[in-house]
Amino acid sequence: MATVGQINELEILKESDIGVYLDGDSLGQVFMPFRYVPPGKKAGDRVEVFIYFDSEDRIIATTDKPKAMVGDFACLKAVAVNQVGAFLDWGLPKDLLVPFSEQKQPMIEGQSYVVAIFYDKETNRIAASAKLNKYLDLQPGRYHNGLEVDLLICDHSDIGYNAVINNQHWGVLFDSEVYRPLKYGQKIKGYIKRIREDGKIDLCLQQPGYKKVTTLSDRVLEELQKQGGYLPLSDKSAPEAIYKKFGASKKAYKMAIGALYKNRQITIEKEGITLIKENG
């Protein structure tokens, strides 16, 4: 079944003077201008298209891909504001409307905002909303500790960064778990650190547990070998220096070199670590 606001694979039914008509199933015949028709495609062939509404609110198909689709959360720039609302650039000829009723505060042209993209069947309109709670699932998600997830950074509070998880749930990246600058609207990979009893989700940027230590330990050993057996980073070194070298937190680094020390692969000194020769 063809779905508005999503990528669909549809069959070309026939050509007209200015384009082709696709089989949109319950949507009827969906028009696509020739400029979007892939070379060599003809009636009977199938094409991947995005279905939305043009400037005259007619259903239309395009092979262009938008920056975000219905059900997605994305950071988009406001390119115009008028008496109807704000219009965001989402990569298609018709900009995406954020009605005033869906704005948390008046949007300003030239600024970017994290929004949810939705399809209003009553008005036959794809639009966006800055009121994210309306479009997120507030029930606990089916996650487990250590699971890799997609994150969209939304804002910063007194305790850390609020992030949208997999276009579905809220999560928090505590400042103590963040060792590199994060930007509003940035998309990054992260991990589920813990699901609390109240259903709230704590996040981290490094995979928790044994796998993280093993991976970082291997990198430390490799770097020691490259540097002739000595590395001027100890468990007392500044977090910034550790992150600059390995992109890891001081806590993770201490766990990694602690594992190497227990395995008798290194010695830990005040200013650095040394590779034990029989392991070099």
Rank of each mutant, 00 (worst) to 15 (best):
residue 229 G to M: 13
residue 44 G to A: 14
residue 47 V to L: 09
residue 133 N to Y: 14
residue 74 A to Q: 03
residue 253 Y to E: 00
residue 129 S to D: 06
residue 267 T to V: 09
residue 23 D to I: 09
residue 70 V to D: 02
residue 138 L to V: 14
residue 174 F to C: 09
residue 84 V to A: 06
residue 219 R to T: 00
residue 60 I to E: 03
residue 212 K to F: 10
residue 16 S to F: 15
residue 96 L to R: 00
residue 71 G to V: 14
residue 57 D to E: 14
residue 154 C to I: 13
residue 251 K to Q: 04
residue 219 R to Q: 06
residue 130 A to F: 11
residue 109 E to S: 04
residue 220 V to M: 02
residue 223 E to H: 09
residue 33 P to E: 11
residue 252 A to E: 04
residue 144 H to T: 15
residue 168 Q to W: 12
residue 12 I to D: 03
residue 185 G to Q: 05
residue 194 R to C: 06
residue 80 A to Y: 11
residue 15 E to P: 11
residue 126 I to G: 00
residue 279 N to L: 08
residue 231 L to N: 00
residue 112 S to A: 06
residue 167 N to K: 13
residue 146 G to V: 12
residue 234 S to C: 06
residue 54 D to N: 15
residue 240 E to V: 02
residue 26 S to A: 00
residue 228 G to P: 03
residue 56 E to H: 08
residue 181 P to T: 11
residue 61 A to S: 02
residue 139 Q to I: 12
residue 113 Y to C: 00
residue 267 T to H: 04
residue 251 K to W: 03
residue 105 Q to M: 08
residue 120 D to V: 11
residue 72 D to W: 07
residue 65 K to S: 02
residue 174 F to Y: 14
residue 277 K to G: 01
residue 171 G to E: 15
residue 191 Y to N: 13
residue 262 K to V: 04
residue 42 K to Y: 09
residue 238 A to Y: 01
residue 194 R to L: 14
residue 97 L to V: 09
residue 92 L to W: 10
residue 148 E to I: 11
residue 114 V to C: 05
residue 1 M to A: 00
residue 257 I to G: 01
residue 75 C to F: 10
residue 38 P to N: 09
residue 251 K to S: 00
residue 68 A to Y: 05
residue 213 V to Q: 06
residue 121 K to S: 03
residue 119 Y to H: 10
residue 111 Q to E: 05
residue 119 Y to A: 02
residue 60 I to G: 01
residue 128 A to T: 12
residue 84 V to W: 07
residue 261 Y to N: 04
residue 48 E to Q: 13
residue 183 K to C: 01
residue 238 A to F: 01
residue 92 L to Y: 10
residue 161 Y to D: 05
residue 63 T to D: 02
residue 30 V to D: 04
residue 159 I to S: 09
residue 266 I to Q: 08
residue 266 I to A: 01
residue 228 G to E: 08
residue 237 S to V: 07
residue 241 A to W: 01
residue 207 Q to E: 06
residue 254 K to I: 07
residue 21 Y to T: 05
residue 252 A to L: 06
residue 228 G to R: 14
